[in-house]
Simulated scan of single mutants.
Amino acid sequence: MSDPAFNVLFLCTGNSARSILAESLLNALGKGRFRAFSAGSHPGGRVNPFALELLEKNHFPTGELRSKSWDEFAQPAAPQLDFVITVCDNAAGEVCPVWPGQPITAHWGIPDPAAAGDGDEARRHAFVDAMNRLQRRISMFVSLPFRTLDSMRLQQAVREIGKAT
């Protein structure tokens, strides 16, 4: 019998770029051991087209991606979260809903690629940089020895990943 998948929620203010990238990356790289979701405190209502373009170009799943409020994950019928990770500094400073089950929390700040430079090429470059940073951190995350770490050590390890470049 296999272990149940860990539920991971990535948060950002607008839920259009960084948290969307993280959701898709973890769902692919986690190989069924993780179920990733994303949400925003003030969702913009649409996924950034540069995020979709980059994910599709690199053969990551995009079909289920949508911009949504974090309120969806504070509802009684929502998945029980094991981890809640903020990926933007604004969301990290906001008062989050109370997550049932006391998930492990961490901040993995990534500069906003949608706010980068002037022009499409500058933004595309910023999206590639954001995705590369997230991919490195998510690779570290999925490689953690979850079975051998108690909750305090796991909390520390997940927070340390946020310091990686």
Rank of each mutant, 00 (worst) to 15 (best):
G44T: 13
T165W: 01
G109Q: 02
V84N: 14
D118R: 15
R33G: 05
G93C: 02
W70S: 03
A36M: 03
S19A: 05
A92V: 07
E94N: 14
L134S: 08
L11P: 11
E121W: 01
H59T: 08
L134T: 05
F34E: 09
H42S: 08
G44E: 12
G32I: 04
V47H: 09
A5W: 04
L54M: 08
G119Y: 00
I110A: 13
H107L: 05
R46D: 04
A126S: 08
L81K: 03
N48Q: 06
T13Y: 06
P145N: 11
R35F: 04
R137A: 15
P76H: 06
F73E: 02
S24E: 08
L21Y: 10
A130W: 00
P43N: 05
P100C: 01
V87N: 12
E56Q: 15
D71N: 12
V84L: 13
A122N: 08
L26A: 08
D71V: 09
S2L: 12
A78L: 10
K57Y: 08
R33F: 03
I138Y: 02
L149I: 06
G30K: 02
A157T: 03
V98R: 11
G44V: 11
K57R: 15
A106D: 10
D129N: 13
N132I: 00
N132V: 00
S151F: 11
A92F: 07
V95L: 14
P76I: 02
S19Y: 03
A77P: 05
P100I: 02
Q135W: 01
E23M: 05
W108K: 11
S151G: 04
P113W: 01
Q80V: 06
I110R: 04
P76N: 07
A36K: 10
W70E: 07
A130Y: 01
S2K: 10
S38A: 10
A164G: 09
S69Q: 03
R123L: 05
A39Y: 03
L149W: 00
G32E: 06
A126C: 11
S41D: 08
M140G: 13
N48M: 03
N7L: 08
N48E: 04
A92N: 12
S2T: 11
P43Q: 05
A74E: 03
A28H: 10
I110P: 14
G101P: 06
E56C: 09
P111S: 13
V8H: 12
P111C: 06
V95D: 15
L11G: 13
